[in-house]
């Protein structure tokens, strides 16, 4: 599993690559915490290359949803593969997280 970062003008893109299990979820948690600590509140999570996410991985993402909202930031997910999207939907995460189809939509969202 790999996490890559790309800073844009008014948001930061986090690329999640591969499979996220209990061990790699700690990595995500640290990455997101670092971004928040550095005052980066608009975060775009690019899931185009995300193959699988375990409940621990979801827990790590979910723990930041409210924190980002409370600090007037936004977290947007894009490019979820059907299998990953099903997991999001099953858990009801689609109700609380902003999910868009692809990167372009995410960029448009932040520009607006």
């Amino acid at each position: 599993m790999k996490v890559e970062l790309l800073d844009s003008e008014n948001f930061t893109t986090v690329f999640l690559i591969g499979e996220i299990d209990a061990y790699s979820s700690i990595n995500i948690q640290q990455t997101l915490q670092n971004l928040l600590d550095n005052g980066k509140k608009n975060i775009h999570i690019n899931c185009e290359q995300l193959e699988y996410i375990s409940s621990a991985g979801l827990g790590a993402l979910m723990s930041f949803v409210e924190e980002i909202e409370n600090s007037n930031g936004t977290m947007v997910f894009s490019g979820l593969k059907p299998k990953v999207f099903n997991v999001f939907q099953l858990l009801g995460l689609d109700q609380i997280m902003k999910i868009v189809d692809n990167q372009t939509e995410a960029i448009t969202f932040f520009q607006n």
């Binding site: 979910m62 009801g92 995460l93 109700q95 609380i96």
Partner: peptide, 19 residues
């Protein structure tokens, strides 16, 4: 049957009927 619903503890505030 897979009615709409959200996991417990995901949203840590009062959930509405809409959820």
């Amino acid at each position: 049957y897979q009615p709409k619903g959200i996991g417990l503890g995901i949203l840590r505030k009062e959930l509405s009927d809409k959820n």
